[in-house]
């Protein structure tokens, strides 16, 4: 990990944004908290302003105490199934997530907490927050170490990510696995076949899979500018997944 990737306190978080209603960040209507700071530098990232763990370059970044966040959540509590922590990489602030979730679950045992993590973190962190977090929504950014390094800006640890995937699956903590189709990088049949093999090896076949088609909007990397993914390519991946026994597929277009 980078030096300045220090984990913050358990009672205060650096928040890059709050979305009070989302239909695409887990089951039901959810309030999403975007935490500032990321350990990867994905070339297709649409929120590069959330990378810097100090948040100094993000004018919308705010410090929020655990009590303040609970108060905000309370305003919307009747409308939501739960809360999703996204980012950035939310688990860089895992102590806060653990403490918040512990408190939140004691107040609202019927609501869920989801962490939208790249799961490229120490497995001990996943085990620790799993005590209070209901589900994770990891993505498999690429199906082999070489490509994974390329996609994550040279910072990703493929072996760690993939063993965490298996760990979460064995704990029953996966809500959905996301497969991002990125033009010229993860849009070939070859990659699709590798993805399928990884999935077969590491997760249950009834896992909910969400296909995410790359959108050029807001992308930092100039390499991907004006590049798009053909709808036929998506259809092909969905077909290939189905043939291989993965039928729980969501694609929002």
């Amino acid at each position: 990990m980078r030096k300045n990737n220090k984990t913050r306190s358990s009672h205060e978080a650096l928040v890059a944004g709050i979305v009070p209603s989302s239909f695409v960040d887990g089951p039901g209507n959810r309030l999403v908290v975007f935490l500032q700071g990321c350990n990867l530098r994905c070339i297709y990232c649409q929120n590069p302003e959330t990378w810097d763990p100090t948040g100094k370059k993000n004018p919308l970044c705010i410090k929020v105490s655990l009590e303040e966040l609970l108060r905000v959540v309370n305003k919307y509590i009747d409308f939501i199934s739960g809360i999703t922590f996204s980012g950035g990489e939310p688990l860089l602030q895992w102590r806060f997530i653990r403490e918040f979730s512990r408190k939140f679950k004691s107040l609202h045992p019927d609501k869920t907490i989801i962490v939208d993590s790249n799961i490229d973190v120490e497995s001990s962190i996943l085990i620790e927050v799993s005590k209070y977090v209901d589900y994770f929504t990891p993505d498999i950014k690429a199906p082999n170490p070489e490509l994974y390094r390329k996609v994550t800006g040279g910072l990703g640890n493929f072996t760690r990510m993939i063993s965490n995937l298996k760990l979460l699956d064995s704990m029953g903590k996966i809500y959905e696995v996301r497969l991002p189709i990125i033009p010229t990088i993860t849009d070939s049949e070859e990659v699709f076949n590798e993805w399928i093999n990884i999935l077969k090896e590491h997760v249950n076949s009834n896992v909910r899979l969400r296909i995410i088609k790359f959108r050029p909007h807001g992308v930092a990397n100039s390499f991907l500018k004006n590049k798009t993914v053909n709808e036929e390519v998506v259809k092909n991946l969905i077909n290939m997944l189905k043939i291989n026994g993965f039928t729980n597929i969501v694609y929002l277009g």
Binding site: G17, I18, V19, P20, S21, S22, F23, V24, V32, F34, G55, K56, N58, P59, L60, C61, I62, K63, V64, E68, R71, V72, K75
Partner: peptide, 18 residues
Amino acid sequence: RRPLGLDELFKLGLRVTQ
């Protein structure tokens, strides 16, 4: 899927601390 604006965060008792 719209994030809260600064004015909305302010109303909720949160403020930009940078």
